[in-house]
Amino acid sequence: MATDGGTASDDLTPTYREEGSFERDMDYVPDRITKDARTPEHGPTDVRLWPVEPGRYRLVAAPACPWANRSLIVRHLLGLEDAISLGTPGPTHDARSWTFDRDPGGKDPVLGIERLQEAYFARFPDYEKGITVPAVVEVASGELVTNDFPWITHDLFHEWRDHHRPDAPDLWPDECREEMEEVMERIFTEVNNGVYRSGFAGSQEAYDDAYERLWTAMDWLEERLTDRRYLMGDAITEADVRLFTTLARFDAVYHGHFKCNRNKLTEMPALWGYARDLFQTPGFGETVDFEQIKAHYYVVHTDINPSGIVPQGPDPAVWQTPHDRAGL
């Protein structure tokens, strides 16, 4: 599997290399949920293995966060809503933790906690790292199982197959897996994380480098998607899920807030058509909450936006306009 490390939420206190470039934390709780707690073929195996068991786990995923948004999409595409329940923290967490401030009484209705931090501490009382989403929590114990977000979606597909809906898409096709790994690696390093390297750059030189790398990759994607409907051809894969969550936030947040402003997504014909195509596909658009997305970035990142003012635009109605990509 392509390396996809990084803090799964948006850091309040970014860390930097000496030259001022943003460096994403790559250390997670790496436990895996596998069928019958088996040793998986791919990925880390020297970890605690938990068995697939419908109803045992709760996915905690804030709609505001792009890394968590992946898991929301995959859970929906595979039809796992009845097998894995969902908790949704609000968008404006503080330095301590994501909170369930939008639930009645400010508590998750299943876990009964106010802060996701409580599930981390239930498993690791001395946990010192950031409290990130997505996270999988064991309902009975209230303990964190894993927050290793790239493997969460990987295992939802490979290990929970017995509980997928009958017409669930093949998100990891064997015939193109090697190429897909390479595509996802470039998307993560240059686009998913590239917007953060621009937004959290600590020097002009670091920003300039991040900006150039981002737009080189965006131009590569524009070309790649000019004559193919999806990244790997004519069917949606995990690669499309991973790219979509960044594109969905691009004009609303990354263009201005993170200074990724060479042009807007709406000004790139292939990428904009592709993004709308996915948005209008069941499982994608309904997981996107632009109000929460904007509230998260513009309120939480006080170092970038000290006023806390949240912009009104852009108009989300543009995402429902025709994309004309079905014939590719």
Rank of each mutant, 00 (worst) to 15 (best):
W172F: 15
F124R: 10
R186H: 15
R102L: 14
R96W: 06
E81W: 11
V136L: 13
L116A: 09
I84Q: 05
W172V: 13
D162S: 14
F149S: 10
I152K: 01
L80G: 04
P134H: 06
K107P: 01
D103Q: 13
L171P: 01
E182F: 08
A140V: 08
P125H: 03
D103E: 15
A122I: 03
D126T: 14
L80E: 02
D162A: 15
L116H: 01
P134Y: 02
S141N: 12
E175K: 04
D167A: 12
E114D: 14
I84T: 10
P91M: 02
L86W: 05
W172S: 10
P169L: 13
G105A: 12
G106V: 07
E178N: 09
A95C: 08
D174W: 04
I131Q: 00
L78E: 01
D108P: 03
P109M: 12
P134I: 02
D170V: 15
R177D: 04
I84N: 03
E138T: 10
L116K: 01
Y120G: 00
W98Q: 01
E175H: 10
S141F: 02
R161N: 06
I152P: 00
T99E: 03
M184G: 05
G87P: 04
W172K: 10
D155I: 12
I84F: 09
K107E: 02
M180I: 12
K107Q: 12
E185A: 15
Y120P: 00
E128P: 07
P91L: 02
H164C: 13
G79C: 07
R161Y: 06
V139G: 08
D101Q: 11
D108S: 07
D148G: 06
A95R: 07
I152D: 00
P89L: 03
L86R: 07
K107G: 03
V136P: 00
R123N: 08
L80K: 05
D103Y: 11
F157I: 09
E175P: 04
S141Y: 03
P89S: 12
G79L: 04
H93A: 06
M184C: 15
A168G: 11
A135E: 02
A95W: 12
G79E: 02
S97K: 01
D170A: 14
F121A: 08
G112T: 08
L156P: 03
R186F: 15
F124A: 09
G90L: 01
G105K: 14
G130S: 15
I84R: 04
E175C: 05
H164L: 12
G105M: 14
